[in-house]
Amino acid sequence: MAAENNTMDESMLRIAMCDDDKMDRERVHGLVTDYLKEKNLHAQVKVFDHPDSLLEECEHFRPHIYILDIVMPMVSGIQAARELRWNQPDAQIIFATSESSYALESFDVNPINYILKPIDKEKLFATLDLALTHVSLGKEKSTTIKVRGGFRTIHLDDILYIEYRNHVVSYHLDSGEIVSPPTLRIGFSEYLDENHPGKEFVRCHESIAVNIAAVDKLTKTDITLRNNENLPVSKSRYAEVMDSYMDYRF
């Protein structure tokens, strides 16, 4: 389905809508457009007619706000929201549906509101107002690292993991790119303490620190990342990784 503003701007509000009904989809899209104009907000808006395309593209688009129909083919809006929640626990989810019977089940994914069709303009606008109070625009965390010829700023959300080999640190990005600072004169632990003192990265192996937000699945021996890449988990580090993972998810 149509996508607007294909180049992602990390400082701009991002909204995704999904509804298999063309008339409902166009109405919600029109209301969101009116809302943005009324509030003088700039946003990247993407509209989807099938949950499969929503899930595939939003893994990288990573909207701040989702507006989802519930009754859709193959994958319901609630099932889609569960998958989206897994990698975006802070996303604001709004259900817009003709079915009231799913209201109780929807609480499983902690939506900000459950609006029945036909969508009321005032109710949607008030819900978007509330959603925006939970969105931090332009404040995505980033790190600036020294690279050959200068410096590079990378959003933490784009980093899957950091690897250390032969005194060289490599940042493995969601795009597939690998960025490396010059050869280190300090150890990996000291580098992480100096450059990543927060809780975003956890050592899963002596030579690997994983971005906990990029973890899709964790076992006692392996981590599966959101791009389906696998990383090893050291036996001695499993408990720390599990604690960080549970803290982040729940």
Score class of each variant (00 low, 15 high):
240 E>K: 12
126 A>C: 03
241 V>A: 10
236 S>H: 10
250 F>R: 13
95 F>C: 07
6 N>M: 09
72 M>S: 01
199 K>N: 14
58 C>S: 10
228 N>T: 09
136 S>E: 14
182 P>F: 06
221 T>K: 14
182 P>I: 10
26 E>G: 01
112 I>W: 02
50 H>S: 11
176 G>H: 04
4 E>H: 12
24 D>N: 15
243 D>I: 09
145 I>E: 00
159 I>N: 03
41 L>M: 15
132 L>M: 14
90 D>F: 08
39 K>I: 08
136 S>K: 15
47 V>G: 01
127 T>S: 08
190 E>L: 14
206 E>F: 06
220 K>S: 11
234 S>H: 01
235 K>F: 09
223 I>Q: 04
31 L>N: 03
139 K>V: 10
227 N>D: 15
106 S>T: 03
221 T>M: 07
36 L>Q: 03
148 R>P: 00
2 A>F: 09
59 E>A: 11
83 E>N: 07
196 H>E: 11
248 Y>R: 11
137 L>G: 02
39 K>V: 06
183 T>V: 15
225 L>F: 00
73 P>D: 09
85 R>Q: 05
147 V>S: 03
101 S>A: 13
82 R>L: 10
1 M>R: 07
58 C>G: 04
188 F>G: 04
41 L>R: 12
247 D>C: 08
4 E>W: 06
